[in-house]
């Protein structure tokens, strides 16, 4: 369990994380979504005690990171696949980490095996591809067999097979009762991996909940094709729905279900050739949710320039 309470980080005049209060529960994969620069990495660094919060707190199982007895045995983190010395071999990198937390050497070979890097364990990590670097980062996170795992953009640089492996791997870790917190800007990826989702924009919490609720609650649009487009459009507008004309025979209706559109067409005796609900993808939902924060960011810059 990770608990964030009013977690805030301010750099000079920029608010990177703004009063974040959320619980990240064990047993599920929690996706951490937000546009670039929305404060995801800063939040993760504060959870790991690397950056000091300006205000508020982040605790792991009720403890501040700094107070954990053996941090790697309670929290495993992949914050940056490149956060290692390129001149050191994968195995030595892990050996040093293991030594600091009194983790036996045989565990190093185990995690290398789990992520499939045993064959290149003696090679310099600097020569690893991004995907191999991610695997090494995941191996480091697993070293202490921790109950809480944090991954910042873990699928970056992975090939499709690697992505599928990571996805199943995370779900497996969560099903063992661990807390798995994964940040990403790839919504489609989170739709397949995460159970819960936390969406932030400009450091503020925008939405938190089950990923299924997020897409269901978002109203989709309905595509209608009809030879009597003009009549249908007038009728739909009278009913108070939003209509955009795509071409001379197709309309996109927003704010209505396909049943409602069908009933309006029937009531005004319009022939329909097609009636298709357009389900909102998580990507659409995300864009809709974060649109304000992105616009806000533009306005911020302008006012900054005026000062």
């Amino acid at each position: 369990m990770i608990e964030l309470r009013d977690l805030t980080k301010t750099y000079e005049n920029v608010v990177a994380v703004d009063g974040l209060t959320v619980d990240i529960r064990p047993g599920v994969v929690t996706g951490f979504l937000g546009p670039n620069g929305s404060g995801k990495s800063t939040t993760m660094r504060m959870i790991l005690g690397l950056d000091q919060p300006t205000k508020g707190s982040a605790t792991i199982n009720g403890m501040k990171y700094h107070d954990l007895k053996f941090p790697l045995r309670e929290v495993g983190a992949l914050i940056d696949a490149k956060a290692l010395h390129p001149g050191r071999s994968a195995r030595n990198h892990l050996l040093a980490l293991a030594a600091s937390n009194n983790i036996p050497t045989k565990r190093v070979d185990e995690v290398l095996d789990i992520v499939g890097l045993s064959k290149v364990a003696k090679k310099r990590a600097g020569n690893f591809s991004l995907g191999m670097g991610q695997r090494l980062g995941i191996a480091a996170a697993l070293l202490g067999d921790p109950g809480v795992l944090l991954f910042d953009e873990p699928v970056n640089g992975l090939d499709p097979e690697g992505i599928r492996w990571v996805r199943e791997f995370f779900r497996g870790l969560a099903s063992e009762g661990r807390t798995v917190f994964v940040s990403s800007h790839l919504m489609s990826e989170m739709a397949l991996t995460a159970d819960d989702v936390i969406v932030i924009g400009r450091g503020k919490l925008i939405r938190q909940g089950k990923i299924s609720d997020l897409t269901e609650n978002a109203l989709g649009t309905v595509l209608v094709r009809s030879p009597q487009v003009a009549d249908l459009e007038a009728a739909l507008r009278r009913a108070g729905y939003g209509v955009t004309t795509d071409n001379e025979s197709t309309l996109t209706v927003s704010g209505a279900t396909s049943e409602q559109v069908g009933e309006v067409a029937h009531a005004s005796s319009v022939v329909l050739h097609e009636l298709t609900p357009q389900r909102a993808s998580l990507e659409d939902v995300f864009m809709e949710l974060t649109a304000d924060s992105v616009e806000y960011s533009g306005a911020q810059h302008q006012s900054g320039a005026e000062q």
Binding site: L48, L68, A77, A83, L97, S100, N101
Partner: peptide, 13 residues
């Protein structure tokens, strides 16, 4: 190399 983050996450004191 920013390995300082990995090091301090392993040993924060």
């Amino acid at each position: 190399t920013s390995s300082i983050r990995t090091s301090l996450a392993a040993f924060p004191r």
